[in-house]
């Protein structure tokens, strides 16, 4: 059995975070951007659990539950805004959402 150390987890979580971050910056579809945002939160969660296990403290594991709740609230509000926007503009592509200019 391969034993994964702390560095592996932190590296993986940094990678996930980077994928999410560049997904938010580079993708054009609002829903995909939203997935990127969630991926960034999940990356933090993974690192938290790994650190919590390695450091032998429970704070990190407990914090994960708070993050899950917050992510759920964020998704609820975010999807509501996206649906309302789609109803009035018939698009969710960010490059077509540029009415606010001067």
């Amino acid at each position: 059995m391969i034993h994964a150390g702390l560095n592996t987890y932190v590296l993986l979580s940094a990678l996930l975070f980077a994928i999410g971050f560049f997904g938010v910056l580079l993708r054009k579809n609002t829903l995909v951007i939203f997935m990127g945002l969630e991926l960034m939160l999940v990356a933090s969660t993974l690192a938290l659990v790994a650190f919590s296990r390695f450091n032998g403290t429970l704070d990190g594991n407990v914090f994960v539950f708070f993050i899950l709740t917050i992510a759920a609230a964020e998704v609820a509000v975010g999807l509501a805004i996206i649906v309302a926007l789609f109803r009035s503009r018939r698009t969710v592509q960010v490059d077509e959402l540029n009415a606010l200019k001067h």
């Binding site: 975070f17 999410g20 971050f21 960034m40 933090s44 938290l48 390695f54 704070d59 993050i67």
Partner: peptide, 12 residues
Amino acid sequence: SILLFGIVLLYG
């Protein structure tokens, strides 16, 4: 998310 990742690193 950026703030949270910073918090996680400091915690770790």
